[in-house]
């Protein structure tokens, strides 16, 4: 649905995005993840036709954004970071205006306004002036605007920024419900968001794609071993020694000790499930096993790993 090939965008001498390539399949929700200033907004602006690429090719629904901008824009709905609303307009008036400039036929306009208003839960504020609405409502009005012409592709730049926790959950649910009918690209620097809403993730840092895949794939790829956390009550030195003898365990690291309860981080071969053996080792020695669980790398860890590695590799080159 969206293809980005070797996209480079320069502002004067600064390279904002360098040779980025990725693809978004139909009906998929793609998370665009990166620290602030990584080039997320720039990439999205090129996809939506707001900025021309310096080089490379971007196609939306088969239309090159540089060569057939109008066709590409007809298939794209865009919610910039700050919702592009006219504060002195009323909600219904604004949506009708957005529909007209995006070529929604006159006959369908009323229906479309009603439909997107219901989808975005703003049907109750139709007659209100946008400037007097809360940030959450404004964001939803912005989203309704992006959907008014029923585009195949929705590009959402930090759709949950500045919302309160309840609104964030609602927005995420709404985005999930759009998957399938629409192809969604959303950018964020908030990691749990990616895990909760996206089918696939593209991690971008300093203008380069550093990783791509499903959240699970990324976790697996970056982790060469299984990590198990074991909490037990007993003499820490003996427990440690016992755990180290379990087959497949490569490293035992004492993480925490409080009130006689010790927590160990155990690294083991990826192929072997050591959990049963670990439990038996503790229990057979008459120590009390309090907790035992696998701990994958969280997206936070992945993110830090990817982005800091990149910086340290680049540093000598500068």
């Amino acid at each position: 649905m969206i293809q980005v090939q070797d996209l480079t965008k320069r502002y004067g001498t600064t390279v904002a995005v360098s040779s980025v390539s990725f693809e978004v399949r139909k009906g998929e929700v793609l998370g665009f993840l990166g620290p602030n200033g990584a080039g997320k907004t720039t990439t999205m602006r090129v996809i939506t036709g707001f900025l021309p690429p310096s080089s490379g090719k971007v196609t939306v629904a088969g239309h090159d954004v540089a060569e057939q901008p109008l066709e590409a824009k007809r298939h794209t709905g865009y919610l910039p970071e700050n919702p592009p609303v006219y504060t002195d307009m009323r909600v219904a008036e604004y949506l009708a205006f957005a529909g007209r400039i995006k070529g929604v036929p006159r006959r369908e306009l009323r229906n479309r306004v009603r439909e997107v208003s219901e989808k975005c839960a703003i049907a109750d504020v139709q007659r209100r002036q946008i400037g007097k609405l809360s940030k959450g409502y404004r964001q939803r009005v912005g989203l309704a605007q992006a959907m008014i012409h029923n585009p195949d592709v929705l590009v959402l730049d930090e759709p949950t920024a500045g919302l309160d926790p309840k609104q964030i959950i609602e927005t995420r649910e709404m985005i999930r419900s759009l998957a399938g009918q629409h192809t969604v690209v959303l950018s964020t620097h908030i990691l749990p968001e990616v895990a909760k809403t996206c089918d696939r993730v593209v991690v971008i840092n300093a203008g380069n794609v550093v990783a791509e895949g499903t959240p699970q794939e990324l976790t697996e790829r970056l982790q060469g071993f299984e990590t198990v956390l074991v909490t037990a009550e007993g003499p820490e030195g003996e427990i440690k020694a016992k755990l180290e003898r379990v087959e497949g365990v490569t490293l035992v690291d004492q993480r925490d000790i409080a009130n006689g309860r010790v927590t160990f981080e155990v690294h083991a071969d990826k192929q072997k499930d050591v959990r049963g053996d670990l439990a038996r080792a503790v229990v057979e020695s008459q120590w009390r096993l309090l907790e035992l669980r696998t701990s994958g790398l969280s997206l936070e860890d992945i993110f830090l790993k990817l982005t800091t590695r990149d910086v340290s590799e680049e540093a000598p080159a500068n």
């Binding site: 036709g49 707001f50 995006k102």
Partner: peptide, 14 residues
Amino acid sequence: RSGTIELLLTSPLT
């Protein structure tokens, strides 16, 4: 100033 120019420039308008 208000950023609404993004709406106009990303709509199918010349």
